[in-house]
């Protein structure tokens, strides 16, 4: 058990190192930030001076080494554009992204769990067919398109009903918050629910076929209890694992939704930073997001072996 955890931690460190290399050099490929920071007619001399100031005149491997050692010491640098510490920017945007992702996962679970469970119960029936069709739509409709369609239908009076705001994050109290949150959260949640639904369905199918579900029926347990008490509790473990992973994955994948709904979160910040060639911001945010993902994966691996009694027995 301890060897397993250690090897997983080592793997996680290697992955993070690889990510840092990729994000660093890929960023440098996009060009010179001074082209954007300075006016068109700035002299070559002022370009030189700015590059020197930002440390961009050093050779690449030296730059990388500085970046790596600074990061490991907790110094994430300053934004090239706004001159503010990157960590300050992240702290500002982080809650908005967390809120959106949390709401998206919540909505997707709300849709996916009951649909997945009942499509397994009614296997091969009409409901199952519909649910699986829905899953295909869920996974094949691009988020940006769905987001735009939702805005058309629910936020623009000329096309549909103006019952939700088109963009931004609510600021006056809880209801305003939720009001702004619903469309973007649904846009993301829709896509996520497809995967969770499929997993719930297949996990449930397996459990429904088990002897203990059979025994529950033999005992005379009412069907809804057979499904939720005896079935779902056992089917939920892989679904839970998957949802936690998805949560981490989606934290980094809010970019599109945040762009469509002008949501002031991390995703939008990264995109803006990429356009501005604001290297410290891009590097830090991407690193952070991947760290969250890698850490969540690690956590799931370890938790899983603790949660599942059978795995515990096997060891």
């Amino acid at each position: 058990m301890r060897r397993f955890i250690l090897s997983r931690i080592l793997q996680a460190i290697l992955v993070m190192l690889a990510v840092s290399v990729i994000v660093f050099f890929l960023g440098r490929l996009s060009g010179d930030p001074t082209d954007i920071l300075l006016p068109h007619d700035a002299s070559e001399e002022s370009h030189e001076r700015l590059r020197d100031h930002l440390g961009l005149d050093e050779p690449l491997h030296v730059q990388y080494w500085i970046f790596l050692t600074d990061t490991l010491q907790g110094d994430f640098g300053e934004s090239v554009k706004s001159q503010r510490p990157v960590m300050e920017l992240v702290k500002e945007k982080w809650p908005a992204t967390l809120e959106l992702t949390g709401a998206a996962i919540f909505i997707s679970l709300l849709i996916a769990l009951p649909v997945g469970v009942y499509s397994a119960v009614r296997r091969g029936g009409f409901f199952d067919f519909l649910a699986r069709l829905l899953a295909v739509f869920g996974q094949s409709i691009p988020s940006f398109w769905l987001g735009i369609m939702l805005i058309y239908i629910f936020a623009v009076p000329q096309f549909g009903w103006a019952i939700f705001p088109t963009h931004g994050r609510g600021e006056d109290g809880l209801w305003d918050h939720i009001h702004h949150l619903i469309l973007p959260a649904f846009t993301m949640g829709w896509y996520l629910s497809a995967g969770i639904m499929r997993l719930t369905r297949s996990s449930m199918l397996e459990v429904l076929d088990s002897d203990y579900v059979k025994l529950a029926r033999i005992k005379g347990v009412p069907e809804y209890k057979v499904i939720w008490k005896h079935g779902f509790k056992n089917a939920a473990l892989p679904v839970l694992t998957y949802s936690v992973m998805i949560f981490a994955l989606v934290l980094g994948g809010t970019v599109i939704t945040e762009m469509v709904f002008a949501w002031p979160g991390m995703g939008r910040m990264v995109v803006d930073a990429v356009y501005a060639r604001d290297f410290p911001v891009v590097q830090t945010t991407v690193l952070l997001l991947s760290a969250v993902f890698v850490f969540a994966n690690l956590l799931v691996d370890i938790l899983y072996s603790y949660l599942n009694p059978k795995i515990r027995i096997a060891r």
Binding site: S210, D211, Y212, P309
Partner: peptide, 10 residues
Amino acid sequence: LQDSMTSLNP
């Protein structure tokens, strides 16, 4: 049932 390993709910 035949096998209580599988017939009891874990």
